[in-house]
């Protein structure tokens, strides 16, 4: 039944990603959706606009949240594909281990970056 648990959260994560990544894509790549996320002229991905979003707590929190669930959804998806290749149990265990470590590592990195840039953006905004 462990697989039922993993799969249920894989689906749930998919639905959440749909909204958050959908929003992310709309802000970044579908121009003119709203200027409230990218007030400065030029591309939504420009440094000024990036720093603007990083200064908002909403973005920092959602970035971390999206990072976590997207990592879970993606790495579990990869694990599913790999496990369908009829691997030896020891290989399956190693894959799970490597994917877990990769996921946690990248989550820590991303979280640190989101918090650090939030601090930088805030100090920049004040200064």
């Amino acid at each position: 039944m462990r697989e039922t648990k993993y799969w249920t959260w894989h689906m749930t994560a998919g639905v959440v990603i749909l909204f958050l990544l959908g929003l992310h894509m709309l802000i970044m790549h579908v121009g003119g959706v709203s200027t409230s996320f990218a007030p400065y002229s030029g591309e939504a991905t420009s440094k000024a606009n990036s720093l603007f979003r990083d200064s908002k707590l909403f973005f920092t929190v959602t970035y971390i949240f999206l990072l976590g669930i997207a990592l879970y959804h993606g790495l579990y998806g990869l694990r599913t594909i790999l496990f369908e290749l009829t691997l030896k149990p020891v290989v399956e265990k190693s894959i799970t281990f490597v994917l877990t470590i990769t996921g946690l590592g990248l989550f820590v990195l991303g979280t640190w970056a989101a918090i650090a840039t939030h601090a930088i953006a805030l100090s920049g905004a004040r200064g």
């Binding site: 039944m1 462990r2 697989e3 039922t4 799969w7 599913t80 496990f83």
Partner: peptide, 13 residues
């Protein structure tokens, strides 16, 4: 049956 159909090589494949 759910123990087996909900396992790693059950319905979710």
């Amino acid at each position: 049956r759910h123990q087996l159909t909900g396992s790693a090589h059950g319905a979710f494949r």
